[in-house]
């Protein structure tokens, strides 16, 4: 079994990796609502689905998720076992708020991930029946249309917004905590990293939420 610090280092490295993925994914998705046609998004989706390098990275990404989730669960049970008898009165007010709920927000993100992968990733790769579009005379899967259709449902739209807010809560603690686990704490830079961590969480969350909102209300 790895030591407690090694486990935390693995968690933080995987976490930081997943944050970079979130940024890439977000920037591609935003093309759908920023660009005037779905073409940019569809070409990007096609590239992400067919490029051999991306295909390798996709396996790495799934690995990153699995490792992060696996050790998150192991840590949760170990921490739970470290206090067999809990307190009658527990004043939580002194803790940074979202850090207490990482396993809970994490579990919600996992549920969200399952729904999300099934509706988009699995559908475009395996289940078939994708709408087709033509760009410069070449046929492509119309991923953009799939997204637009999905988010025209108010229930589906709200589901995404709610789950994404919980992802934001998870991210709020994530970045600065990962740095601390990696031993990066410096009197000069840590105050900035803490602010940057919140900034990152807010920007990523608002960025992602804007997509279903814009599609539902504007597009």
């Amino acid at each position: 079994m790895y030591s407690s610090i090694t486990k935390k280092v693995i968690m933080s490295l995987m976490g930081l990796f997943l944050i970079t993925f979130l940024l890439v994914h977000l920037s591609l998705n935003l093309t759908l609502i920023i660009s005037s046609s779905k073409d940019t998004f569809n070409l990007a989706a096609h590239f992400m689905g067919t490029n051999p390098v991306v295909k390798v990275l996709e396996v790495v990404l799934f690995g990153g998720f699995i490792i992060h989730i696996f050790w998150g669960i192991v840590l949760f049970f170990q921490n739970w076992a470290a206090r067999p008898h809990s307190y009658a009165v527990w004043n939580h007010s002194q803790e940074t708020f979202f850090s207490k709920y990482m396993i809970h927000t994490g579990a919600l993100i996992l549920a969200f991930l399952a729904i999300h992968l099934l509706d988009f990733w699995y559908k475009s790769r395996f289940s078939g029946g994708m709408p087709i579009t033509q760009i410069d005379g070449i046929k492509y899967d119309d991923m953009g249309q799939l997204v637009l259709d999905k988010f025209k449902s108010p229930a589906y739209c709200s589901l995404y917004v709610i789950f994404l807010i919980f992802m934001g809560f998870h991210l709020d603690h994530a970045f600065q905590s990962a740095l601390q686990s990696l031993g990066i704490n410096h009197s000069k830079y840590t105050p900035f990293f803490k602010k940057f961590s919140r900034f990152l969480a807010v920007v990523i969350t608002i960025g992602y939420i804007s997509i279903p909102i814009v599609i539902y209300f504007i597009l």
């Binding site: 407690s4 170990q78 921490n79 076992a81 470290a82 940074t96 905590s177 686990s181």
Partner: peptide, 11 residues
């Protein structure tokens, strides 16, 4: 000794 792992709650 069975102490838990740090999750940086800073409590």
């Amino acid at each position: 000794l069975g102490f838990g792992n740090c999750t940086n709650t800073y409590a």
